[in-house]
Structure formats: structure tokens, C-alpha cells
Amino acid sequence: MSAFNKSTSGADVVAAFPEAVQGKTCKRPMSTWTWCLLTWAIVVITGPSAGGLGAQTAIFLAAGKPAEILLLGRTESKATSVMEEIQKISPSTKVSFIHLDLTRFDSIKFAAAEIKKLVSKIDVLINNAGIMGVKEYTLTPEGLESQFGSNHIGHFLLTNLLMPSIETAGRGARIVNVSSNGYQLSEVRFSDYDFDNGKAYDPWHAYGQSKTANILFTVSLASKLARKGISSFVVHPGAIYTNLGAHVEMSEWATVGKMFNDRGYPSVGINKNLAQGTSCILVAALDPSIESNYLSDCAIEETPDYAHNTELAQKLWALSEEIVGEKFQL
């Protein structure tokens, strides 16, 4: 990982690991017989709107010529140019769009079923979609605070529904959850994750809670899947201008910076472009040398106890199962 840093472009990461995108060779011991099987990679990415991290990640991955890229989002027209660009770069790569609304359990279940019809395995799942700083207290159709519901619970359900396909890919398969340093704004409020039905709502504490949840979810996945050789990572891509900030007014950033400072963390302004923002995601998806679960600037970064404590991770897993009404045995 020493070759990659804050300034690295995602294109450089893909170029460094062509075998991770194209496939892998499996061999039997010479004492019996030897065979090789090239399995072309299939990648699923949520949040593929043009101009966002998911879209740019998919475009860079296309240069490695994976077998398929499945783009999951709410509006196909916002991903049309992305799909066209992928096909230009790699005509051999099959690219599909699947409708997904992470706030709706029925939409998530439908998307998972459609994916299973299209592909038999998933080598890399990148949970990238998210919302940030929703000013007014808003509930999902399932009755959840919108940022917690979309950023964490939606991806929790989607990932678990897709797990059979990830397990079919076998050892080396990866799950990448896109978090942010926003986790520094709040712990998971286990006893009041809905902010007293909105009475105690703060958009940035809500965002922070959802990003901490992304990390704790990854801690659980990494623990549960280790024996199967399936890895899970969580990344902070950096501070970047994307459509993620659609709800945020420029005047709010000074207040947000003070919130970071008040909790003992430095406030950080825009520090990367879109290409640089994808690099950490792609390191997590492709670099075989990494073992830790939280990455920032393409390097391992420590997080406070509330974001990596295994007991809290288990507690969040149990709460998430209760919310979605299903139990998942991995």
C-alpha cells in the first residue's frame, strides 16, 4: 500500500491490480493434477449517478475489463452516461442498471432478486450510495430516520440478501462500505436512534450516527466472514465535491467544522478531486495486501472505540436484524 496515498487516482489503483479485476487462477497440487480456471470479476455498485464516487469508481474499473458491472440506483437516466462510458472503455464488459431505493425494503428485496437472476456470483460489492445533512427530520417509508435508514439499514439488508452470491464467489470476494470521517460527529444512539421521534434531531448527528454504523457493520462482516476468506472494508474517501451534498448549504460548513472541533477532531475542507476520492475505495476492493477494516487516504487509520468495539458491532447487528425483521446466519 505504500505506493498509494492521498493524491493517488483510482485509475492508478486499477492499473496496479489487473488480475483482481479480470479474475484469478485456481490450481490443484501438482501431486494429483493441475487445472486453472479464469473467473472474470463481477462488481456491484450502489449510487451510480454521473459525477459521483460510485460512477467514477465504475468507470475506472472498466479499464480493467471485468466481466460485468451492475449499477444500482433510483434513477436510470442519471446513470446512462456512466453506462455508455463503461461500454466505450470496455466493450466486452456487460453493464446493467437495476432500480434500487435504499429507503424501501420492498425495493431492496426486488433489486436483490433481480441481481440473482442476472449473475451467479458477486466478486466485489461496493456499498457507496448515501445521503448527508438532511435538514428536516425525515422518515423512510419504513419509519426510520432517513440517513440511518438509507446509509446503514438499507445497505445492511441489501448486503445480507446478496450474501449467497458473494459466498459463491468464494475466497477473495470483498465487501466495501463507503463511510466518511463524519463518523466523528456521533456514536450510534442505540437507545434513541430515531432522535426521540425527531424532537432531538440534528442533521449532522444523524449523519454521524449512520457513518459510525457503516464502520460497526463492517466490523461484524469482517468477523463473520473471515473463515470463508471473504473480506470486508470500510473507507473514508475524503472531502470531495459531489452530489452527496445536495441538501447542504454553504453557510452550514462553518457550523459543521465547529462540531468536529468540539468533539476533538480537526475540521477538514475539500481536499480531493473525484479521481482521488475513488482511490481508497478501489484499494479496498482490489489490493490483496490489506487486512484492516478502516482506510483513509489509502492507508490504515485507527478509529475510536465506539466505532470498532466488537460488542457494539454485535449490538448494532442485532438491532439491524430487528429493524428489517430478518435474522442472517453467516
Rank of each mutant, 00 (worst) to 15 (best):
Q184S: 10
P91I: 05
E187V: 12
T32D: 09
I69V: 04
L53D: 11
S49M: 02
D262Y: 01
G154N: 11
E145C: 10
H247A: 11
S231G: 15
V176F: 00
W317M: 04
A239E: 02
A254H: 04
W35E: 10
D305S: 09
C26T: 15
I89C: 06
G10N: 07
W35F: 12
N271L: 11
S251F: 00
L274Y: 13
N197Q: 14
L38Y: 11
A79S: 15
Y137F: 15
H236D: 07
K258L: 11
L70A: 05
E249R: 08
A3I: 04
V14K: 08
G229P: 10
Y183R: 13
N271S: 15
T310H: 15
G170H: 02
P66M: 03
N261C: 12
I59A: 02
A239V: 08
F60L: 03
V14T: 05
D101M: 09
V82H: 02
A226N: 15
M30C: 06
P288S: 12
A20Q: 05
I59W: 05
P288L: 14
S267C: 13
E167Y: 07
Y265H: 15
H152A: 04
A169S: 15
K94L: 11
G277N: 02
R174N: 06
K272A: 13
N127L: 02
S296I: 00
H99R: 14
E142H: 04
S180E: 03
W204T: 00
E145M: 02
V268N: 12
K27D: 13
K211E: 03
L225K: 01
I230T: 09
L100I: 06
R171E: 14
F105R: 02
Y201S: 06
C36N: 15
A63R: 14
N309K: 11
N273Y: 14
V21Y: 00
P29E: 01
D202K: 12
I290S: 10
L185K: 10
S2H: 07
I122T: 12
I215N: 03
Y241Q: 07
S267G: 09
K228T: 11
E85H: 01
A254V: 03
F233G: 01
S31D: 12
C280P: 00
S150H: 07
Q209C: 13
K24V: 09
E321I: 05
D123R: 12
S9L: 05
C298E: 02
I240E: 04
C36R: 14
E249T: 09
I86N: 04
K6F: 08
S150D: 05
L162M: 08
S296Y: 08
K6W: 09
F156M: 06
V44M: 02
Q56L: 14
G64I: 03
F110V: 08
A15D: 10
Q314M: 10
N214G: 08
L316Y: 01
N293Y: 12
D196C: 01
K224Q: 11
K224W: 02
I300D: 09
T46E: 14
G238A: 13
I281S: 03
V268A: 06
V268Q: 12
S320M: 08
F156R: 06
V13H: 07
E84D: 13
P266I: 14
L225A: 12
A11M: 01
V43W: 06
K211L: 03
V178S: 03
K6H: 15
C280W: 06
G149H: 05
I108L: 00
S9F: 10
S232R: 03
H152D: 14
A169D: 07
L161H: 05
S92Q: 15
L161E: 13
P304E: 09
